[in-house]
Amino acid sequence: MTDIIIHCLIALLLPPLLLGVITKTKAAFAGRVGAPFFQPYYDLLKLMRKGSVFSTTTTWVFKAGPLVTLAAILVAALLVPLGRHHAPISFQGDMVLFAYLFGLARFFTAIAALDTGSSFEGMGAAREVTFSCLTEPTLFIALITLARMSRSLQLSTLLTYPTPAIWLAAGASMLLLVVALFIVLLAENCRIPFDDPTTHLELTMIHEVMVLDHSGPAFGVILYGAALKLLVLGAIFINIALPVTTGNSYGDWLVFVVAMLVLSVLIGVVESVMARLRMVRIPQLLVGATILSAFAMLLVLR
């Protein structure tokens, strides 16, 4: 019971901090002090108190988009184990539902973008759905590989399965999986080198351009949803990349939180040292990630 409460608290409260850490890291690389770590929380609170502007073109779909997206990601957050602890809800085959919840989220984000009738947002929606379509097979190949290793279809068993011993035994395929999943993590969360959340030119954006017309609480919901998505996909990555356990339940929670923060720093570093890829290169990198995870699967089958 305590674990369930801690799981929910971490899932609900930690995400904005990750954004804060990323921004701070980037600021440090640029030689600036940067916004405080808790700035995203202030932003969210502020947005919840701001008025909204609605385009006359939009319908109820525009308002429903961010809400359904957040609901889907929240349910996904209940399915994914954080660190060494099993998820609050877990059943055979939950991995399929997990992947499809992101599909639902994407569908609603994209139609909410198209609801404005803006060509920028149409462009962003087209890019988002196309790139995600290429990341989905990667995720599934990675999950099948882990399912075969752990002989389970349950996310909680499957993601808590890797241990240092397994890393030593199947290091190559684990490494390939980690690389592939890191690419998926960056692509799905619209990070450099796939997308630049801070750019000022709508033509080059993917996710940010889809939400141009959202304002007030709706925009807060979108920001929060994006941060939560970072936590959920980051948790998958950390469970595989950092298979350590302290033996103490609270210790494991602490390890997870610290690992999440380190991962945010890592993302911040990637964002600082890399440039955004040209749009035509992105599919190549994503297909490359699929092939990497397929290699990992081959090595496990061998």
């Binding site: 599909g103 994407r106 609801d115 149409g122 929606a125 759905v129 290429l134």
Partner: peptide, 21 residues
């Protein structure tokens, strides 16, 4: 998974272009 992703593209396009905007 690939088919599902492509279906999302197709039907976001269909629904979005026909009914929205």
């Amino acid at each position: 998974a690939l088919v599902g992703g492509l279906a999302v593209i197709t039907f976001v396009k269909l629904y979005g272009i026909v009914f929205l905007g």
